[in-house]
């Protein structure tokens, strides 16, 4: 089984996969409609890598994270950890020891009735780590995120600032010494100065411990400055992926191009000439036929509403985009590309 699961390495020079998802789909039933929150996503996350998953809210990036952690029932596809399927009791147990997650809202992420000590110890209890190790590991985890254990162990969340809460959440994620940490908008609710502190803590851990990170964010500039690779999602699918430099400096997919131009630049009077996307992200119960971006696309042409493009190479070192502009064969052939043939329920 595991042989078939091995993903084809995008870049031969790249490291080994920590996790990989293959053709992953998640559907939500909404009355009579089916929302395709994730619609055939394939992605590799390498050891020690900082991977950015960017997109607008509703594009499925948080669903992807939850599905990767087995918190979300999937409608198809596979999630692997070190090449082994991460399902079933054993697979999930392994996954939960090696991969941790932190969440966006520092006010929701901690139980208001637990002290910092209990919050950070919790993973050790759940994972049945020997009691004698608890104190030492909790103190070390707090130290790793720059908090003095003696001062903070006995505090309640309401006695902490937003940044401190997020640090506690990170400490609780680190106490099991995971190999990967999925961060769902970890700093979007924090102030600028606190934000860069939290990011510095995460990056320091990444370098010192070779901790792999996934940053789920709507903030392209953040992904640009921190990530090794970036995957751009639109309406439940990855439309472009590659190294941060490739994706941001020479975006290929019209959606990525639009996202990049939309980012405000903190230099006086950034982009006067920007061309903005019209309209809004459609909801995932009504995925447009053909390329899902075509109704909003400034560069759409004739076959775009008929042919659903697949990710194809558009550059070196694994730069891929799912756009017919770069796939003349598919654009002419008019046949739905393999692997993306639409098998799921009727949209709309």
């Amino acid at each position: 089984m595991s042989d078939g699961v091995k993903t084809t390495a995008v870049d031969p020079s790249a490291g080994e996969d920590l996790m990989a998802v293959e053709d992953l789909s998640v559907h939500f039933r909404q009355r009579r409609k089916v929302a395709r929150a994730l619609d055939g996503v394939s992605l590799e996350w390498r050891r020690g890598e900082v991977l950015g998953v960017v997109g607008e809210s509703g594009c499925g990036k948080s669903t992807l994270a939850r599905a990767m952690l087995g918190l979300q029932e999937t409608a198809g596809g596979e999630v692997t950890l070190h090449g082994n399927e991460a399902t079933g009791k054993k697979g999930l147990a392994e996954l939960r020891r090696r991969i941790q997650m932190i969440f966006q809202d520092p006010y929701q992420t901690l139980n208001p009735r637990q002290r910092v000590r209990a919050i950070v110890t919790e993973p050790l209890i759940v994972q049945n780590v020997d009691r004698s190790e608890h104190t030492e590991r909790v103190r070390r985890a707090l130290g790793d995120v720059g908090m003095d254990p003696d001062r903070f162990l006995d505090r309640y969340p309401h006695q902490l600032s937003g940044g401190q809460r997020q640090r506690v959440a990170i400490a609780a994620a680190l106490v099991l010494e995971p190999e990967g940490l999925i961060c769902d908008e970890p700093v979007s609710m924090l102030d600028a100065s606190v934000r860069s502190q939290i990011l510095a803590v995460l990056l320091e851990l990444q370098q010192r411990r070779n901790l792999a990170l996934i940053f789920i964010t709507h903030d392209l500039s953040l992904a640009w400055s921190l990530c090794d690779r970036i995957a751009v999602m639109y309406l439940g699918r990855i439309v472009e992926q590659g190294t941060a430099v490739d994706v941001i400096e020479s975006p290929k997919h019209p959606y990525t191009q639009a996202l990049v131009t939309a980012v405000p630049v903190p230099t006086a009077k950034g982009r006067e000439d920007r061309e903005l996307l019209k309209g809004e992200l459609p909801d995932s119960t009504r995925v447009p036929a053909g390329c899902r971006f075509n109704p909003r696309c400034p560069r759409r042409f004739e076959p775009c509403d008929k042919v659903d493009p697949t990710l194809i190479d558009v550059g070196t070192s694994g730069h891929k985009a799912a756009c017919l502009l770069y796939d003349p064969a598919a654009a002419e052939g008019g046949a739905p590309a393999p692997g993306y043939s639409d098998t799921s329920g009727e949209p709309g």
Partner: peptide, 17 residues
């Protein structure tokens, strides 16, 4: 729906816990 419950679940905690 609070994320500390989700976090506990991501840790592999059971319903009883």
């Amino acid at each position: 729906e609070r994320s500390f419950v989700e976090r506990a679940r991501a840790l592999g905690a059971g319903d009883g816990y």
